[in-house]
Amino acid sequence: MKDWTGILRLEAEERDSRTVARNVYFQGAFKVMRPIYHDDSGQPCYYLLNPGGGYLDGDRYHLGISLLENARLTLTTQSATKIYKTPNTPAYQETEISLKKGSYLEYIPDPLIGYEHARYDQKTVIRMEKGASLLYCDSVTPGWSPEGTLFSYDTLRLRTEIYMDGELAVYDHIKLQPAGQPVDGLGFLEGYTHLGSMLFIGEKADAGLLDELYSAVHPEPDGVRIGMSLLNVPGLAVRILAHSTQAVERIQAECHHLVSRRLFGRNPSFLRKY
């Protein structure tokens, strides 16, 4: 194993209609708290902590999440992931997720904040079996620089690959580089500052669900633009442009709610953090 700044391994299985961890391991600047069962659904929620308080020059993080058949789990963070200046080497995070048949992972991290001169590279590879479901969220936000300007980060790059039964089914590549792009111009963020994404992959993601999501978030709230569409495989993507983290989170929460109702006929629990 290369030198990782922080490692998390989490393998979960279903036992007596409850999901329990078979293997939890963390090391370095990653930590998970004991899981919380917010309700009687048997679905635990794990909170990921970065005790160091942020990602620094050359930091490398590795997450490995594996859900066995029919396991259900929520993974979130306890607070935003802060990327500070990286004068020499960009901070890097690699995530590998494996989802067996019938399993369901909700990955709902807090936003990523890029501060002045931050460079960050994230690579996420998700391997799903048919019959598994995934709700995957991301959001990218600019931190204020000491001079009070936004967009002072250098590069925030997030690559996501989702394989279904071994075939690449979704490829998403976000790369925001304010110095080299007219980042708030036409075709880019178009005057907005926050970019949120949500992918829901699974057999229950159909045109009917897309219509429900669309109706729930349209007309768009002030200061938010939302696009959504069906994917190549059963699944959908939601993209959000906004001016605040709260606005992105509100839309993601709304969509999470409807996805959860569609999957289990019940509302998700509020992810208490404070």
Partner: peptide, 19 residues
């Protein structure tokens, strides 16, 4: 590795066109 970098505004306009 540079393949497929997203243009968020353009993608949004393509998604919105469906409606």
């Amino acid at each position: 590795e540079d393949f497929g970098v997203l243009s968020p505004g353009i993608e949004l306009s393509q998604m919105k066109h469906e409606r």
